[in-house]
Design a protein around this nucleic acid. Structure first.
Ligand SMILES: [Mn+2]
Ligand SMILES: [Mn+2]
Ligand SMILES: [Mn+2]
Ligand SMILES: [Mn+2]
Lengths: 221, 221
DNA sequence: ATTTATTTTTAGACTTATCTAAATTTTAAT
DNA sequence: ATTAAAATTTAGATAAGTCTAAAAATAAAT
């Protein structure tokens, strides 16, 4: 139906729309896909002809309903496969992304339905990102970066902003695990670095840069 | 490393070498891949440049050691995925091939090692075909078509020659299952059709055409 | 040993996805 | 309102894989 390349463009556009403005620029897509603006323009024409995007020269691009549905299906597959690799195949959360990038393009409705069932219909992937259901419905959790909390706040780790293997391995080394409880013990004014305790263990420091990349929700008390 | 297309050519050449002569013709490859001879020639030059095949104009083609190793790895992945789909995802043996054709190209050593382990290192796939081990070693079983046996012979179903969904579904309907015991009750001289009993159930007729496509080994008595 | 038929290869063209360099449009700055 | 800068699009090329039609080589038939 759609080529791998088309699917990757659709997904990139979806992610850019998700995190930013109401339309996506040619350059933004080019940067995210590690290609040149000229290539993006060519592809936008193709996707537009297929009614996957709303595109007018120089005016940026958005996804059509059909394009969004396509994007959500690819993301569903990506996240289910990541979950599978971690839960069943002993992959760590920093290892799964590259393989999932390949697996997300496999076409078989039955395969994905069975995968979902096999994993017992998970709601979030190993990075805490929500998994769209078979209908493309996606339940967002209203989490915020840890950097937005204050001294004595207690919150629960729900995900990450930065998905890079190096950041994920850093979190592993520090003992951060999704679902763990973080208490902010102290905050330095000059750089907003934090002294925190994870699951009531010995406290330690993290930079504001790290805090901005850890997603949490306030603990219900 | 190698494109999907290159991998598919390598696999096709391997299969043709396996079942037939000592070299493979351009036309044979074209037929198997549903392409034209001209396209095959182009690809053979490319594979030759990559040292995957031994190719000289007009002289047919064979695989190099490197090419054969590549082929066996793809076949290993294909058959492990077929096994996985049947054992874990409720696929029937007539449904798995098309999905495995996609999955066989996923690149991740760890994924395949874990898949193998998850399935407890199976020796044969759902169709009875041998699965190469991680080193590319392949243990062939010396089975023969049921059509080569005679009245009163007892044998065990080990595989199929024809892998088409329609043949596999026919076998399902008749109650043939790998490992089942077949006893030949009678044979018609004029068309070599057989009256057989599977696992000592009520006997029925099969054509010589069917018998030629069921692989068996003589039952040890 | 020629002629004929078949197989295989080459030549040239097309599609998808990419690039660089040049042209155009939009946006920002004077 | 011009001019300058940035973003975007077009033009023209390239590489992978495919095709048709024509040429060349091999195999088969007389
Ligand atoms: Mn991922
Ligand atoms: Mn993820
Ligand atoms: Mn198969
Ligand atoms: Mn098989």
């Amino acid at each position: 139906m759609h080529s791998f390349t088309e699917e990757n463009y659709i997904k990139a556009i979806y992610k850019l729309l998700e995190s930013n403005d109401e339309t996506v620029s040619t350059n933004a897509i080019a940067e995210r896909m590690n290609t040149k603006a000229a290539s993006v323009t060519d592809m936008l024409k193709k996707l537009s002809a297929k009614k996957l995007v709303n595109y007018q020269k120089y005016q940026g691009v958005t996804l059509t309903a059909k394009g969004e549905k396509t994007a959500l299906n690819i993301i569903r597959k990506h996240r289910l496969w990541e979950m599978f690799l971690v839960e069943k195949f002993n992959f760590t959360w920093d290892e799964v992304h590259d393989v999932a990038e390949q697996l997300e393009h496999i076409q078989s409705e039955k395969l994905i339905d069975e995968l979902d069932k096999f994993l017992n219909f998970p709601k979030v992937d190993p990075h805490g990102d929500p998994i769209p259901d078979a209908k493309g419905k996606l339940h967002l959790q209203k989490s915020k970066p840890l950097s937005q909390f204050n001294i004595d706040d207690v919150c629960v780790i729900t995900g990450v902003v930065d998905h890079s293997p190096s950041f994920l391995r850093y979190l592993d080394k520090q003992g951060f695990v999704l679902g763990n409880e973080i208490k902010i013990k102290d905050m330095a004014d000059f750089d907003r670095s934090l002294q925190i305790s994870v699951n009531k263990r010995a406290s330690f420091f993290i930079s504001n840069d790290v805090a901005k990349n850890i997603l949490v929700i306030a603990k219900q008390i």
